[in-house]
């Protein structure tokens, strides 16, 4: 057993680093901060830029102090900044209402680039509307309230409904994105529900629940879209 004295010293030392207490832990405060800061900036280049130096540094300090990082794996811990933002930083979220969307967007790009291979293995999709496809985990869809993917950052405060799919290209391994229509987003998000037996059943359900009639052309377009995903090995 470690002695109580040693235990208390180690706890206090770590606490002082996290709280930036002015004391002999200053060297370690800088080392911990520099390391975490470098990793976070690499993952959140737009967020850190848009917040400005002061707000960004405060956010990093608060993250270190208030959030207990759980990830053993270094490339994954920056994702915990998004988790921290979900529950904390109310004032920052008020000042920058797009912050959660932007953090999720930037983290998802990195996560999808690095994450473990998860090909869609079962082949349920037969190219018709009578089956339901199985999705690869290298593919995700998002509903954002701000156009965080817009290269023109000036538009980022334009509140609205923005639907996006982000996926890892199975040939180049680069992360790519594509905007989705609200209908396509609704279909794709519901197709991931295991209770849905076929695409046809889902379309009937959408029609009955929303009174939105899906016409034949839309069905053809949907099938083409799904076949494209199939060719990209994002569904099977």
């Amino acid at each position: 057993m470690i002695s109580e004295k040693d235990h208390i010293w180690q706890k206090q030392f770590a606490r002082n680093i996290r709280r930036k207490t002015p004391d002999s832990s200053a060297v370690y405060q800088k080392m911990v901060r520099d390391n975490i800061q470098d990793n976070l900036i690499n993952v959140y280049p737009i967020l850190s830029h848009l917040l400005g130096v002061k707000n960004w540094n405060n956010l990093v300090d608060n993250f270190i102090e208030k959030h207990s990082c759980q990830s053993l794996v270094f490339w994954q811990f920056p994702g915990e900044l998004y988790d921290y933002l979900v529950t904390g930083e109310l004032a920052l979220k008020k000042e920058y209402p797009f912050i959660l969307d932007l953090a999720l967007y930037e983290w998802s790009i990195v996560d999808l680039y690095f994450r473990k291979d998860h090909p869609a293995i079962s082949s349920a999709f037969d190219g018709t509307l009578k089956t339901t496809p199985v999705f690869s985990k290298e593919f995700e869809i998002f509903h954002f309230n701000y156009p965080v993917f817009d290269k023109n950052w000036k538009n980022i405060t334009n509140k609205g409904n923005y639907f996006l799919m982000i996926y890892r290209n199975q040939t180049s391994f680069e992360v790519e994105l594509q905007q989705l229509s609200p209908l396509l987003f609704t279909i794709l998000s519901n197709l991931q529900n295991p209770d849905i037996q076929s695409i046809e059943e889902l379309l009937d359900l959408i029609t009955s629940e929303t009174n939105f009639k899906i016409n034949e052309q839309q069905k053809v377009d949907l099938l083409m879209f799904l076949k494209d995903l199939y060719s990209k090995k994002l569904i099977a």
Partner: peptide
């Protein structure tokens, strides 16, 4: 060294007390 404590990773190597108790631990 130690790099995590209180259920939090700090991603840096921090010094340990060179004591008999910590040695056994």
């Amino acid at each position: 060294a130690f790099s995590s404590i209180d259920n939090a990773h700090m991603y840096e190597s921090m010094p340990i007390p060179f004591t008999i108790e910590s040695l056994n631990h």
